[in-house]
Computed example of a mutant assay.
Amino acid sequence: MDILISGASVAGPSLALWLQRYGHHVTVVEKAPALRGGGYAVDFRGRVHMETLGRMGLRDSLEARATHMGDIAIVDAAGTQVAALPSAIFSGDLEVLRGISPTCSTRRRGSTCDIASATRSRRSPRTSAAWT
């Protein structure tokens, strides 16, 4: 089956990976001219998230790129720490920068998917490329 997914942030490439694994031809369209880096971090929390990343073949790759967020220190005007917020409040079992997650899923070995950018010229509205 041919399937079109709109959006190449986190969910789009992840869904494409699963659908392709089950024999579907997937095209992901994205308004931006390229995958975006930066932005907020993506947190994975708990057994289900970690097992899913493992089944997708992404866990090792993402763990290698973890932010390893530390505790947040609150300091006064003199620079003396007056309080601390544990990192567990803000990050999950695994935290990566936003741009890392789709990059890992789209570059997973043996995974190919067509990507089309909606910002390409009208003359060539769809460019197909393999994500490997």
Rank of each mutant, 00 (worst) to 15 (best):
D71E: 10
D2G: 00
S124D: 14
G110I: 09
P125I: 06
G54P: 10
C113L: 08
M56V: 11
L19D: 03
D2A: 02
W18F: 08
T132K: 13
R107T: 15
A129E: 10
V42A: 01
D93Q: 03
A11I: 15
S105R: 13
I115S: 03
V42F: 00
M50V: 08
R47M: 10
G110F: 10
A116E: 02
R47P: 15
A73F: 09
H24W: 01
L17Q: 11
L58D: 12
D2M: 00
A78H: 08
D2E: 06
P86M: 02
T27G: 04
R109C: 10
I3P: 00
T119L: 08
V10A: 07
A8K: 01
I72P: 04
P102F: 03
F44G: 05
L17Y: 12
R98N: 12
G23K: 00
M69S: 12
A16F: 00
G57H: 13
P102I: 05
L19F: 13
E95R: 04
T67G: 11
A8D: 01
H68S: 10
S128W: 02
D43M: 02
T127E: 07
Y40F: 15
Q20M: 06
Y22N: 02
T67I: 13
S101T: 13
S9D: 10
S105P: 05
S91W: 02
M69E: 14
H25Q: 12
G99L: 10
A83P: 11
G57M: 07
A118L: 12
A83Y: 06
R45V: 13
H68F: 09
W18G: 09
A129N: 06
I100N: 14
S87E: 07
D93P: 07
A34P: 04
A129D: 07
S121R: 10
G7A: 01
A118Y: 02
R120P: 07
S9W: 06
K31I: 07
G39Y: 03
V96A: 05
D93E: 10
R47W: 13
I115L: 12
R59V: 11
E30C: 03
P33I: 01
E95I: 07
D43T: 03
D60T: 15
T132H: 12
P33D: 05
I100G: 09
T103H: 15
P33V: 00
F90T: 15
S6C: 03
G92W: 04
E95Y: 04
H24L: 04
L85Y: 04
T119Y: 09
G110Q: 04
G110E: 09
